[in-house]
Structures are given as structure tokens and as C-alpha cells.
């Protein structure tokens, strides 16, 4: 099966090789491509069936998590990305990749005006900001797929996902409660933090490790082909990685769901 997947590497990306391994185990054919190669035209997004923005600290997150990489997406790849998106191909942003997609306005992407025009920038009404603990934190969390998620390829994931978070800016926040209601109504919530039995974390630390509103760990776009999440499913693709020793709840399930049926 040849299912080419582009794993985008910008300066400071660091979970690209793990993401590639997860894609490979799930049956894909991943290739790590540097953003400079993409800019130079050595590769095009359209050469690939799926795009992964992996974790790390793109450009050191020096101006905020994912901000500089988001600018790259807007300035250099706006058209390519719109075309890729319009063709319904799947995009996965993990951790820094998720932050990048949100800050570039690709997620949740209800707007159609993703672009460099200066009038459109103020419309973003959700963000990923500093953890309420005020610092970077690494720990394992449980995730549940939101049943109403527009990303219907998630539906076959019938178990929780157990995997680590490792971030300082994973706190999902919205400008006002109406934004949250809209997210729910539109089916744009993809993952939530839960306890080991699947009950809502209800904001309790450390089940919800960063203070995210409504325990939101990941979201998707209205078309359901783009998802992003803070935790790292690529770090639990083999039961031997499970700190509690169980066999199930693999993050690999997410990669399988995204790659299968394509």
C-alpha cells in the first residue's frame, strides 16, 4: 500500500521521526520534508495524500508556540494548503503542529479567508496558551474521542487513547462562551481529557493537564479532514511504551484511523 505522507519539519521540530514511525506502523509511507525543501519546490503538498505537522519547538517558539511556523504557512503555503484541504486530504497537527494550525487559522478553519491579507487576522477566537501551572509539563493522560466530531474517521476508535503530553502552551481557550457552544454545535471538538474510566476530567488537574476549557485536547475543522491535538499519540504505538503495562489504548489507533479507508 502506497500512501505517501508528508511529515513537515521546520527548524526546531523534534517529534518528526516518531510521527513517521507511527505512520509507517499504521500502513503509510511517511517522508520527512524540511520546510525549506517545500519552499524551494523540491516537493509539493499535492505529491502527498496526508500532511502531518509534528511536535517540537518550531523556531524555538520564541514569539509564542507555533506562531512563526503559522506565519510560514500563511506566507509561503497558503495556496498549496487550501488546495490540499479542498481535495479533502487529511491533515494532522500534533502539539506544536496543532498550535501552528490554530494560530494559522487552519483550525478550526470555519473561515474561508485563511490568507495573508491584513484585514482577516483578527477573526481568530480560540488559542492555545500557557498551561495554568505556568510551566512545561510531561505526563501521561487519557483521551476520549468526541462522538459528535465532524472528523468521522475517528469513529472506529472505540477505546480511550493513553499517551503523554509534553508542552508548556497546551491550554485551549476561547474568547467567549458562545465560541465554545459553537464549537460543540458544529462538532469541532475531537478529543477531550478524561480519567482512566473515560469519565470527564472536568477540569481536574492532572487529568486535564493544562487547564483547557471543557477539557478540550483536540479539535477538527468543519469538513472533518483536519485535526489537531496536544497529546502525543505517536509516543504510544507499541504496548511496551505503556507505563501502566496495559496492552490497549494505543495512540496508534489514531494513525490507523487516519490512514485506513483512504
Amino acid at each position: 500500500m502506497n500512501f505517501p505522507i508528508l511529515i513537515l519539519h521546520a527548524s526546531g521540530t523534534n517529534r518528526d521521526a516518531e510521527a513517521a514511525r507511527a505512520c509507517e506502523l499504521a500502513g503509510g509511507a511517511p517522508q520527512i520534508v524540511h520546510i525549506n525543501q517545500l519552499r524551494a519546490g523540491a516537493y509539493r503538498l499535492s505529491d502527498f495524500e496526508m500532511l502531518v505537522l509534528p511536535g517540537g519547538f518550531s523556531y524555538g517558539d520564541a514569539l509564542g508556540a507555533g506562531v512563526r511556523q503559522a506565519l510560514d504557512l500563511r506566507v509561503f503555503f497558503n495556496d498549496q494548503l487550501q488546495e490540499f484541504n479542498a481535495s479533502g486530504k487529511r491533515v494532522l497537527g500534533i502539539c506544536n503542529g496543532f498550535q501552528t494550525l490554530v494560530k494559522a487559522g487552519v483550525l478550526p478553519g470555519a473561515r474561508t479567508d485563511v490568507g495573508t491579507g491584513h484585514t482577516q487576522h483578527a477573526t481568530r477566537n480560540m488559542t492555545l496558551t500557557h498551561n495554568t501551572s505556568g510551566h512545561f509539563e510531561c505526563r501521561w493522560v487519557h483521551l476520549a474521542v468526541e462522538p459528535s466530531a465532524q472528523a468521522d474517521f475517528l469513529a472506529p476508535i472505540d477505546d480511550l487513547i493513553f499517551c503523554p503530553v509534553a508542552h508548556g502552551e497546551g491550554n485551549f481557550q476561547v474568547t467567549e462562551s458562545a465560541t465554545l457552544s459553537q464549537l460543540k454545535q458544529d462538532g469541532l471538538i475531537a478529543f477531550r481529557y478524561v480519567d482512566a474510566n473515560g469519565a470527564p476530567a472536568a477540569g481536574r488537574y492532572p487529568l486535564n493537564p493544562n487547564g483547557s476549557v471543557a477539557d478540550i485536547a483536540g479539535i477538527c475543522n468543519p469538513a472533518g479532514n483536519i485535526i489537531g491535538l496536544m497529546p502525543h499519540p505517536e509516543d504510544h504505538i507499541d504496548p511496551i511504551q505503556n507505563p501502566l503495562g496495559g496492552k490497549g489504548r494505543l495512540g496508534l489507533a489514531l494513525f490507523r484511523a487516519m490512514i485506513a479507508g483512504q
Binding site: 517529534r15 521521526a17 511536535g55 509539563e137 510531561c138 509534553a166 509516543d235 504505538i237 511496551i240 511504551q241
Partner: peptide
């Protein structure tokens, strides 16, 4: 220790913390 990423590269099999409460 929680402020250090001890999971990146996906190969940490025995971690700084252990047990049901990790």
C-alpha cells in the same frame, strides 16, 4: 522532573516515575 520531557523520541521504557499513580 515533570518540567523535563522524558518521553520524546518514544523510547523511554523505564521512566523517572513508576507505579499505578506514576
Amino acid at each position: 522532573v515533570r518540567t523535563y520531557d522524558h518521553e520524546v523520541r518514544g523510547g523511554t521504557l523505564v521512566r523517572p516515575f513508576t507505579g499505578p499513580q506514576m
